[in-house]
Design a protein around this nucleic acid. Structure first.
Length: 470
DNA sequence: AGCACA
């Protein structure tokens, strides 16, 4: 059984396939030329030309495996090599069993949108802006951007076709708000169709493509202008209006968010909030308090931009599965919280090296300080992520020792079994930059949620699951 | 001359 798939590539003992891989083709070899080449051996049912960096490779797929075998066999023993335009063509079985291409279906509704962004160059619209615009309609799983002849394009993956349809209906033909774009961009129209893809295969997190299970955590905006998630012309009722008819921002922004927590069946601790909100940037301070019989919290970011992103992404979402601890976010009028550095109801993370007890961040992660600003979670590596260094607070937290958990499992480590939505693709654990903690999860079907494992308000971990199992 | 998606 040593000859099963996944064997060394450049061997003559490849598994036969209806699909042949051709290389050393002339520049931009046409499909017709490939069909001509294969015709003596059988019927070619599909091709893919101009493959590879040099666009001098191709795939041809025969109707029948035996036809492919006959072609390979013939040229393996022939004194005359296969040629196209006088150029020797090297032929092997492809290591795939079928050609998959042209994944643009157009009007058949699917959960993935193909968006052409007209009037801009690739650098003009960041993936984060795309994310902001499109996540107004539902959780955006993944985004891939690329440039083709058609221009700058993006694939946007939603949970389902209904959500994608909503976004398409609302945004097709509309323009991305000016304030989300660089100054020099004058128009930016979106042309949207459905892709035939159902699950994008994002191999690397980058500025071009990200699995949004981490893009939400890796947001790292370069822009200094305030960003709003709302396209006032397009959202219409999906979000509360934040921009007036004149395009001016109505709701005063703030770097401090006010979070009202609804249906708080489980304890929402400072640590929990820290984990959730850190996904979007450095959390400076947190304060939890009771108001009108409900629990509220203030979360302070260094800047408005980060707060805006967090607000947009988290609004209406639940910290725990099952609709528990739903967040309602607004901007606070505060800009700088005055809180106790360490208490069970507040935390000041800006006071980090004042000699308060031990600091796992400093001791275990040498590079933490540099990675902190843009991506705090990267700093933590395995145990007791940043912000968990509090002395044992009163009450419930004592029964749940943060230092023994991997709560807020940081990027790239994912100790144990990170929660993986059943509909989701595997999170890239290598190859890409460790840009994000595993924190932004969602229920596959309906509303995005944060996969924090709930602890009952009384203390002990419920359901026999390990606490902090992210 | 050496395996793609969009």
């Amino acid at each position: 059984m040593s000859s099963s798939s996944g064997q060394p590539q450049f061997r003559y003992t490849q598994t036969p396939s209806k699909v042949l891989h051709l290389r050393n083709l002339p520049w931009e070899c046409t499909e017709e030329e490939l069909i001509e080449l294969g015709k003596p051996f059988g019927k070619i049912v599909n091709t893919k030309c101009n493959v590879g960096a040099n666009r001098n490779q191709a795939f041809v797929e025969f109707a029948d495996l035996n036809q492919a075998i006959s072609m390979v066999s013939y040229y393996a023993s022939s004194s005359e090599p296969a040629q196209v335009r006088g150029k020797t063509v090297y032929i092997q079985y492809s290591n795939r069993q079928e050609i998959v291409n042209n994944k643009v279906s157009g009007e058949v509704a699917g959960n993935v949108l193909l968006v052409t962004i007209e009037g801009v160059e690739a650098g003009d619209v960041s993936i984060d802006v795309i994310h902001l615009v499109f996540s107004a309609f539902g959780f955006v799983h993944k985004i891939a951007t690329f440039e083709k002849a058609a221009g700058f394009q993006a694939l946007i993956q939603y949970t389902d076709a209904a959500t994608a349809s909503e976004a398409k209906n609302a945004l097709d033909g509309r323009s991305i708000p000016r304030y989300l774009l660089p100054e020099h961009v004058t128009s930016c129209y979106l042309r949207i169709s459905f892709s035939a893809h159902t699950d994008l295969n994002i191999k690397f997190q980058s500025h071009r493509s990200r699995s949004l299970r981490s893009v939400n955590l890796a947001i790292n905006l370069d822009y200094t202008n305030p960003y709003l998630p709302v396209n006032p012309s397009a959202i219409e009722g999906n979000l509360q209006p934040m921009v007036g008819p004149d395009g001016k921002i109505k709701e005063p922004e703030s770097n401090v968010l006010l979070a009202a927590i609804e249906n708080m069946q489980y304890a929402v601790t400072v640590d929990v909030l820290y984990t959730v909100f850190s996904a979007f940037g450095t959390v400076q301070k947190i304060a939890i308090f009771e108001k009108n019989g409900g629990t509220q919290a203030l979360i302070q970011y260094p800047d408005v931009t980060t707060a805006a992103v967090a607000k947009e992404a988290l609004e209406g979402h639940c910290i725990y599965d099952g609709g528990y601890c739903k967040l309602h976010l607004s901007y606070s009028r505060h800009t700088d919280l005055n809180v106790k550095a360490y208490s069970d109801k507040s935390r000041d993370y800006t006071i980090s090296s004042t000699g308060i007890l031990s600091n796992p961040q400093a001791s275990s992660v040498p590079s933490a300080s540099t990675g902190w600003q843009t991506n705090p979670q990267v700093a933590g590596t395995s145990v007791g992520s940043i912000g968990m260094q509090a002395p044992v607070p009163v009450g419930q937290a004592a029964a749940w020792d943060p230092s023994k958990t991997t709560f807020a499992s940081p990027a790239g480590t994912f100790p144990g079994q990170p929660f993986v939505p059943s509909a989701g693709a595997p999170f890239p654990t290598s190859g890409g930059p460790p840009s994000a903690p595993a924190g932004y999860f969602q229920a596959p079907q309906q509303r995005p949620q944060y996969g924090v494992q709930p602890r009952p308000a009384s203390g002990a971990p419920p359901y026999g699951q390990p606490p902090g199992y992210f």
